[in-house]
Simulated scan of single mutants.
Amino acid sequence: MLKRPPRDLRLDVLRGWMQVSIFVSHAFGTAFAWGIHAAWGVSDSSEQFVLLSGLVLGSVFSLKFARDGFGAAWRDIGMRAARLWRMHLLVFFAFAAMVFGFDLFTPLDGVVEAGGWCWLASEPWFAIPGAMVGLYQPDFMGVLPLFVLCMLLLPGFVLLLTRFGARALILPWGLYIATQVFELRPPALGGTYIAFDPLAWQVLFMTGIWLGWRALHGAGPLARPWWLVSLAVSVVLLGFWVKLSMHGFAPEMPAWVLALTDKDVLAPLRLAHALSLAWLVSILVPREARWMQQAFPQAMAAIGRNSLQVFCLGLFLSWIVAALFRLFPADRMLLDLALIPAGIAILIAFARWREGDRSVSYREATARSQ
């Protein structure tokens, strides 16, 4: 029988900070974007979130598989995927209503076309099924379909891990290499594009599953030879230099180097940077660091424990902030100083509220069972 490991507070804090970073990065035009790690490297919070989600969900599935059997674990992950799919559709329609509302009732013209929502307006009988299968992806609608697909692939990959161990990684990594060599990509509908090519991005999720699976089976930390640590540091420094070049602070990089940082297809330098950064953080940040008990890290941990709901709320808040920047360009600096901290405070308050509401529900359920 596998034993559930103690909760790692680092994961909650990091996932919370990544949600804040995603909110800031989506508020296009904010000066606060210079304060997140995406401004200084060629990967961002998306890669880390996919990797950690694979680790957490892979651990949950593997533990339930060991305790209750494959059928129970499969039903559990299937229900989680179904809930996430419903959440994606809810966000899709609510986001569409917001965008169309701004287009109709504010001077902000062209947001429907710019965001890829025209197909929904002109041919909803085709656009809605396209959204349901994840192939119609207006702005900000690309990441949740990726997670739904990866969750559906999770049970089969865990079976491969159970049978073949780490050799099972040959399959997702082989598929990733094929996407880079042969430019494999699913078709996009409605004039949009696939923001996160699932054939490539699955490699982060599956690698996370493997990390969670091996930890549950009592494997120790990954080896840390000096040459591998040096390589990881070199990749992070290279990403920093490339980003300086993009900002105009360093000599311009050749086009082929910039192509290696492409996000849509998770290009090789971007993937290497994300994995190097994640590994170095796991090495350098102690599991029981005292600073994580302070107020701000605890607030980030609350966000991390409610990351899906906070992510969805953050999408709306960031889009509204960016829209207000465009509506009131003369007041942009003041709006930036007010709206970004206010948005972060709303995300923290929302996460705290969800935690309190969940605690009340748990106590009520316990009382009824007694």
Rank of each mutant, 00 (worst) to 15 (best):
G16C: 06
A255S: 07
F147E: 05
P198L: 05
A178T: 08
Q202M: 10
D331C: 13
A301T: 03
W227P: 05
G212Q: 07
S276Y: 12
D357L: 07
L144N: 13
G208D: 01
V143E: 08
P225F: 03
S21P: 03
L315S: 14
L313Q: 04
Y193N: 11
L228P: 10
P186S: 04
L84K: 00
R67F: 14
Q294L: 15
A232M: 15
T366D: 05
S245R: 05
V281D: 00
P329Q: 15
W227D: 02
L347T: 14
L275P: 01
D68S: 03
L337D: 05
V233P: 14
L51W: 00
Y176T: 05
G16P: 10
W213E: 01
W226I: 05
V229C: 06
W279L: 11
M18Q: 11
V310N: 13
P297H: 07
L135T: 10
W353C: 04
V310Y: 12
F350Q: 08
L51D: 08
F70S: 12
A168S: 13
A255W: 03
R287G: 00
V229T: 02
L327A: 13
A168D: 09
L313A: 08
R326P: 06
E183Q: 13
L120Y: 02
A131P: 09
F95E: 10
A255V: 02
R290M: 05
G71I: 12
A96I: 01
F65H: 14
D76R: 02
P329K: 15
A38Q: 11
T207G: 06
L152A: 08
V91C: 00
A131R: 06
R368I: 08
F328I: 13
W117E: 05
M132P: 15
G35T: 10
V281P: 00
A349Y: 06
L104I: 11
Q202K: 04
A267K: 05
V203T: 02
C312K: 01
G304Y: 04
C312N: 08
A200W: 00
G134N: 12
L216K: 00
V158T: 02
P221T: 12
S122N: 07
E123G: 06
P254H: 12
